[in-house]
Structures are given as C-alpha cells and as structure tokens.
C-alpha cells in the first residue's frame, strides 16, 4: 500500500476551468516508509497539492488516497494518522505554547504530554510563552511539535525549515530521520534543494502546477543535463541545449542537455585549456526542469 497515491489531481480556484490554476493532472505516489521530497518554487502548486490531500480544499478533478483512505470520504481518519506542518503556522492569540499543544492533543483525543515534553526539550521551546510573543522560528517549533507529538504514521511538511536556525534545522532533521527509521513516511515540500538532496530518497519536481519529474534523488541527479566547465575560449553561439551560462574572460560554465557530438565539435573548434563535465547537483537539476520550456 502506498502512503500517498495521487491520480490526475486538478485544482482550479474559482469556477472549474475558468478559474486560476492551482495544480493540473498531478499524479504521484509515495511508498510507505519513504522520505520523499516535493520540490518547486513558490506558486508552483506544492501547497495546493498538500492542502488538497488534507481536505482543506476540494479537488476540481482527480482523486487521491492517503494511507489507503480516500481524501474526500475518510478525511478525519487520514488526519488522525497524519501530522501536518504548515509553511506558516498561526495560533490563537492569548494562548501559551502549552495550551496550544494541549488543544492540539485534545482535538486528537490523545494524551501527548510525554512526547510533547521530549520534543520541546530537543527543540528548546519554552512552553510558558504566549504565542503572540514567539518569533517566527519559535512558532515554527510549536507547529513542529503539534505535527509530531501524536506520533503519526505519515508526516506532511510544507517548507518545514523556513525560520529555523541551522542548529534547529539539524535537530529537526535528526528527529525526522529517527521517525523515518521507525517506519514513518515523510513527504517534505521545499524549495531548499540541498535539504531535499541530503534527506530524501526520492523527489518529485512540480512546475506551474504539473509534475515534471519524479524519481529517486540519485536518478534525478543523473539526468541527461551535465554541468560543463571550460577554461579557454569557445564559441557557444550555435550550440543548442545550453542553459545557465556563466562566462568570464577565461572560462565559461553552463548546463548542457544537447548531444555530445555537437559539444565536442564546438570544443574542437575552440581553444580549450581545461575541461570538466560533471553530474549536476539537485539545484542544477531544478534549473534544468524549470528552464525546459524557455
């Protein structure tokens, strides 16, 4: 059974087909126990996909199952077994952190005090503080604890590290890796590619509401595009498949997705002192997918 299975999910805001497109024909599966990344810049459709899975918005078309349950019919059971971290956590004014954590646990009809205390200690969160006094980072920590304290089977995290300092990010990912080892499925949306590359085993790339790639992080990194760095002088003018070009007097670097024969021909014509052709990192893959249509 897949932890998340999305089939042709489409969401238009406003009237169907005439409204603003949120996502279109999104299909995606996340296996149980997987640590899956969901990459895309702001406005690409990451949050729309996640919010549809959680029943906050209704799909215009398509279907999805979370933990084998239908997102339309079994919303409450899905939410009982899922932990969700929103990109921007907001809490009720006047409440203290401990009240927020208790309210979250009460809404789940669970006693989460022990787990909450452990998480607060690890993330160094003072539960006696009022939520309106919290910094963005501390509000994020409170939201993380709300998402984790009931020990869910699936974690859906929307831009989880924004606002967290590097030390806290490390502590947070340590907790996630522990949970993942214990069998928890993690679906992490982010535009910070390095954190997806470091932590996820698989990733999906979303662009303008459509999934443009979905594979293991390793396989995505082995995409046909290569990072080419040339020291010397070459004329790239006629070469197609060149993107992300950075040129100096002495060298040039670019992402290349054209044929090797053509590249070699151009190099042979030029004056090359040194050359390196390497696998791009995820950041470059991301640019590769995002510049495909340009």
């Amino acid at each position: 059974m897949d932890a998340i299975r999305i089939d042709n999910l489409t969401k238009y805001y406003g009237t169907a087909r005439k409204g603003i497109r949120g996502i279109e024909q999104v299909s995606l599966t996340v296996a149980q126990g997987e640590f899956c990344g969901f990459i895309g810049p702001n406005g690409a459709g990451k949050s729309t996909t996640i919010r549809t899975l959680l029943g906050l918005i209704r799909p215009t078309e398509g279907s999805a199952q979370v933990l084998g349950l239908d997102i339309g019919k079994d919303r409450e059971e899905i939410l009982a077994r899922t932990g969700y971290l929103p990109s921007e956590a907001m809490f009720y004014p006047g409440m203290r952190v401990r009240d927020v954590l208790k309210l979250s646990a009460d809404l789940r009809k669970k006693d989460c005090r022990r787990e909450a205390a452990t998480l607060c200690e690890r993330l160094q969160l003072d539960v006696s503080r009022k939520v309106e006094e919290l910094s963005f980072g501390n509000r994020k920590k409170a939201a993380i604890i709300c998402a984790l304290q009931h020990e869910p089977e699936l974690l859906i995290l929307d831009e989880p590290t924004s606002g967290l300092d590097p030390l806290m990010q490390r502590a947070f990912f340590e907790i996630l890796r522990e949970r993942n080892k214990a069998g928890v499925t993690i679906f992490l949306s982010s535009h910070v590619l390095s954190e997806v590359q470091r932590n996820c085993t698989r990733a999906a790339v979303i662009r303008e509401g459509r999934i443009v790639a979905c594979d293991s992080v390793e396989a995505l990194s082995r995409t046909s595009a290569k990072r080419v760095v040339i020291h010397g002088r070459v004329d790239l003018g006629l070469l197609s498949g060149v993107r992300d070009l950075e040129e100096t007097q002495e060298s040039c670097s670019f992402l290349y997705s054209g044929g090797m024969k053509e590249l070699l021909a151009v190099l042979a014509e030029g004056e090359v002192h040194d050359l390196s052709v390497s696998e791009p990192d995820l950041e470059e893959i991301f640019l590769h997918f995002y510049s495909r249509k340009q």
């Binding site: 919010r51 929103p86 809490f91 809404l107």
Partner: peptide, 13 residues
C-alpha cells in the same frame, strides 16, 4: 486569523 489551517488539519469534521 490564519488559524483555520491549524484547526481543520486535526481529525475533526
């Protein structure tokens, strides 16, 4: 107040 996301992602219909 932006709290709908908090409330409605709990298992409450």
């Amino acid at each position: 107040d932006g709290t709908a996301e908090f409330l409605l992602t709990h298992p409450v219909s």
